[in-house]
């Protein structure tokens, strides 16, 4: 089973982070949300492996305060 990579995997982390913030620059909040959704869909297709995607979703959700199911 493929495992979600959570060790550092991005060669230039500061560049990535700046690019992510830049991608949203100047957008109204609603458009930013849409951008995020599109981004998730594009990246999910790039990853392709549903098992890895499920791990990422679970991990993302576990870190959200409002998630009662995770506690």
């Amino acid at each position: 089973m493929s495992k979600l990579v959570t060790d550092p995997n991005i060669g230039a982390p500061d560049d990535f982070y700046a690019a992510l913030i830049d991608a949203h620059r100047g957008l109204p909040e609603a458009d930013s949300h849409l951008l995020n959704a599109r981004l998730i869909l594009l990246l999910a297709n790039h990853i392709g492996d549903l098992e890895v995607l499920r791990q990422a979703m679970a991990l993302a959700r576990a870190g959200v305060a409002g998630d009662k199911a995770a506690t």
Binding site: L34, R38, I40, L41, L42, N45
Partner: peptide, 16 residues
């Protein structure tokens, strides 16, 4: 939002 994001990507991208 996700539904509309999928539809918005679908015209140009086969995966969507």
């Amino acid at each position: 939002l996700f539904r509309d994001a999928v539809l918005g990507l679908a015209r140009d991208h086969g995966f969507a």
